[in-house]
Simulated scan of single mutants.
Amino acid sequence: MDNEKAWFVRRVVLSVLFLVAVAVPLYPELFGLDEVTPFPQLVAYRPQGLVVLLVLALLMLVRRGWRIAAALAAVLALVGGALVAPRHFSHARQAPADARQLTIMVANVLGGGANAADVAQLIRDRKPDLVSLPEAQVDVREQINALLQDQQYKGYTAQPGSAVESATSVLVAPSLGPVTFASDPGTTLGNVVVTGGTLAGVRLIAYHGYPPLTDGVMTWKHDLQAVRHWCSEDPATIVAGDFNATVDHADFRQALGGYCRSVGPTVGGGLQGTWPADQPAVLRTQIDHVVVTRQLQPERFTTYPIRGTDHRAVVATVAVLR
């Protein structure tokens, strides 16, 4: 083999190795690495990673010897971008005119660090039927509710552990009537199940999933399995909260299965990042979700700033299909 052919073969081999190297953090599930740190953490920023990869591929075109690698990287970035694009360009389907609407709000209050007045004002403005408050202990819930006395929201808190992060609270609008509150012991952190009243067979669940910390990936996976369980059951279900997972996580997609869908990506709001709130929008990722089963039609999804917390609040509207 002459030197030119040998160099071409070497470039091809090195280009393929480069492609694998950049594909692993973007698509660790393809390599069986989605449970191995740091990949569960990195894949949460897949959209941003694809943009960086495309820019890198364009810069690599300057060097003739790098053009094969640049072409492979550009193809990966463009294909990945095409898969991400529907999260922004999707539109809500038209629900029947007589369908009942439910408005759901999520606000991780960072253990009470969030400005209670901001949370209360958003509730006044958007008038949600259910407010999911991850990391809100009883005192935080009551502080927010005290600013809403004329609204007559009812509250409940589940806190299975002593840590502030384990608390999850809900506020329920009086329009839902005499609802029943319960806690499902199937998750590590607190969750609240709301049924009855005028929900007429719809189940509302306020949820907080364990984060994929270096030493907590298996606990994170366990909590997402609870979501899969809720989604696969018969009652029409809405799960709202801080999932600590994005649609780029294979475990989150498996939890939804064919039973549930996240409202944001379904209605074109899938690239509205909710965390970390103190970073520019392009550096955020969407880990706060409103997830619904197929008996409910996603309609709107919007995020809002709340002072004092590292999460943006989420307000989603869904229609109940009969």
Rank of each mutant, 00 (worst) to 15 (best):
L296R: 03
S90G: 09
G190K: 00
V20H: 03
F252K: 00
L33E: 00
V267W: 04
A117C: 06
A99G: 09
V314W: 05
Y259H: 15
V318S: 07
R300I: 00
S15D: 05
D118C: 13
D278F: 15
V119S: 10
P40N: 04
Q137E: 12
T188D: 11
R46K: 11
L50E: 03
L224D: 03
G80D: 01
A250V: 06
P160E: 09
A167V: 12
G177P: 11
E299R: 11
A69L: 05
V22H: 02
D223K: 07
L147G: 14
V164F: 11
T195Y: 10
E135Y: 05
A146F: 04
G209K: 06
R124A: 11
L26T: 00
A182Y: 03
A158F: 11
S162W: 07
K221E: 13
G201M: 03
S183C: 09
K221T: 13
R322S: 15
V267H: 06
L17W: 00
H249V: 02
T303A: 09
S132T: 07
P174H: 07
T219R: 14
P28W: 02
D215N: 14
V119M: 09
A281C: 07
W66H: 04
A136K: 00
I205Y: 01
P305E: 10
L176E: 05
P276K: 05
V194D: 01
P28V: 07
Y207V: 03
G65D: 08
R312G: 04
T168A: 14
L56D: 00
D2F: 10
R300M: 10
N115C: 10
A82T: 06
W220Q: 05
D34S: 15
V9C: 12
Q101V: 10
A92R: 02
V51F: 07
P178M: 08
T103P: 06
V9T: 10
R203T: 13
A236K: 06
L122G: 10
Q295N: 11
T188H: 13
Q295H: 11
A44R: 06
D288G: 14
N244T: 05
R64I: 09
A82I: 01
D150K: 10
R63W: 12
F301A: 15
D215A: 15
R124L: 06
I68N: 04
D242M: 02
T214Q: 12
G268F: 06
V109H: 00
D150V: 08
T274S: 15
A73I: 03
T246E: 01
P25N: 08
A82Q: 01
R63P: 02
T168N: 13
Q94S: 15
V290Y: 06
V13S: 10
D310E: 11
L122I: 07
V164M: 12
R203N: 05
S166V: 10
L171T: 08
V282D: 07
Q295L: 09
G186V: 08
G155C: 08
G241Q: 03
H289I: 02
G112I: 04
T195K: 12
Y153V: 03
R63S: 15
F243W: 01
G113D: 07
R284H: 05
